[in-house]
Design a protein around this nucleic acid. Structure first.
Lengths: 247, 247
DNA sequence: TAGTCATCATGGTCTAGACCAATTGCAGAT
DNA sequence: ATCTGCAATTGGTCTAGACCATGATGACTA
């Protein structure tokens, strides 16, 4: 960081945090800072640019919102790696499609339990109230960075001993090999959101990080609901690609 | 705002902006504040809760990220309306699907021009370099609030006098009725993003507002590229629903 | 060698101001 | 009634501190 960037735009447009953003942004584009690199600390930037810490942070927040950098709590700011591409129509599981993009996927199972169906889930699965359902909460990472939290619900009636298998591998593969279940149709809903509460905690992020919430209902060839899934992605970790015939 | 909320959680978890967020959030859930209502000014909240303005703003930013409130520059903070649902597989145009949800859509054409194809666009449209393409930039609103900026590109060879029509109506309808063109397939890519630069300006938002960027390539029945579209949505204005057969 | 613990650096939270720029609302003029 | 322009209000930007909570580090211990 020896070459200080001139952040003075010196016009009616004198928003200093924009200048600082452009400066850091330029260093990233130029390759001075590469994905995974640590930025100077806020206090270093402060003395380097002669700005108050609040202004420095404003610029960092903006870069974070743009997906250019991310933070590790009380460790520092880092340059973001590129996002992974996710095509819901070619669903072969997280592990395989992340690997196919030359990245290293990992899955950590946070909790599993079998619970009786509440009214909503009873409706979704077309099963009686109280029917047993497997709940699985997993954290998934790319290249060592946690990128999404997943809450999976599967009908225990058709996958009785599912929780006995190693859930840190591909669930798709388990369903196919152990239970002969394949997915034929997905109904997907997604919204940009803020990651808060448990999701923020599991991703080790401050509450409020932008994210993408995705809900999926998966059906097998007979129209039976196989899986009900809630995913919470970091906003900077994913790009969705789909190819659709219009109805 | 007569019943002041007690924001003191008074524990190890004493992050006052979280308490304030919960307080405002509760008022919205309870119906004390309805969509479109204006919140008290930051300085009023300041004296009401006895917090520094920075802390008040922290809470407001969080609520904004959650999609609960939005701001109008130097006017105030307002409670967000519910998002519109958008199904890319049932594309009948913005106007009709927003209306179908009981909302009032509007379109404002910002600029139109016909430009020669650059290398990228030449590739996308499978047309020679320099072939004429219509560029259309539009701003679309729901219930009077600008929710998305759209940059459309259409092959001028198959829609010669397109720009002479009223582009504040449905483009889908114009393509169908005037040129006999219908869309059979869409290739869609989307990422959560930050709205900056021109997009932020057109939406009258401060740079950095979370958004959803969506690119679409539309093909007709012969596999010909009909339309190349870039959309930038406010994050709190849209929910995507798709129903997919898995390949 | 492996584990423990104190220390330090870092981001997270908060205060208490200041001034600026755009919007809004009102008073007055036409 | 409509327009104009001023003044107040509001959010936007910025400063200069303070203290806290957690992660990282390195020295020390078992």
């Amino acid at each position: 960081m020896e070459n200080a960037v001139d952040t003075r735009t010196d016009g009616p447009e004198n928003r200093q945090y924009l200048g600082l953003r452009d400066g850091i942004s330029a260093r990233i584009s130029a390759g001075d800072l590469k994905p995974g690199d640590k930025l100077p600390s806020e206090r270093q930037l402060q003395s380097e640019f002669g700005l108050a810490r609040g202004t420095i942070r404003e610029a960092l927040f903006l870069l974070e919102a743009e997906g250019a950098i991310f933070r590790r709590d009380r460790s520092g700011w880092y340059v973001s790696p590129p996002p992974v591409v996710y095509d819901p129509t070619r669903w072969e599981g997280f592990m395989s499609y992340v690997e196919a993009q030359g990245r290293v996927p990992a899955t950590h199972t946070i909790r599993t339990e079998t619970l009786p169906a509440d009214p909503l889930l009873s409706e979704v699965f077309s099963r009686p109230l109280g029917a047993p359902l497997h709940h699985i909460r997993r954290l998934r990472s790319v290249d060592g960075r946690a990128v999404l939290v997943e809450k999976l619900i599967v009908d225990a009636a058709i996958t009785p001993d599912l929780l006995d298998f190693d859930l840190n591998t591909s669930l798709t593969a388990i369903l196919k090999r152990k239970f002969g279940i394949t997915v034929a149709r997905n109904q997907i809903s997604m919204q940009p959101c803020a990651l808060t509460g448990n999701e923020a905690v599991d991703l080790k992020q401050k509450s409020g990080l932008p994210g993408l919430a995705l809900q999926r209902v998966s059906y097998d060839g007979h129209g039976r609901v196989v899986e009900y899934d809630h995913e919470y992605w970091r906003h900077d970790a994913v790009q969705i690609n789909v190819d659709l015939r219009v109805r």
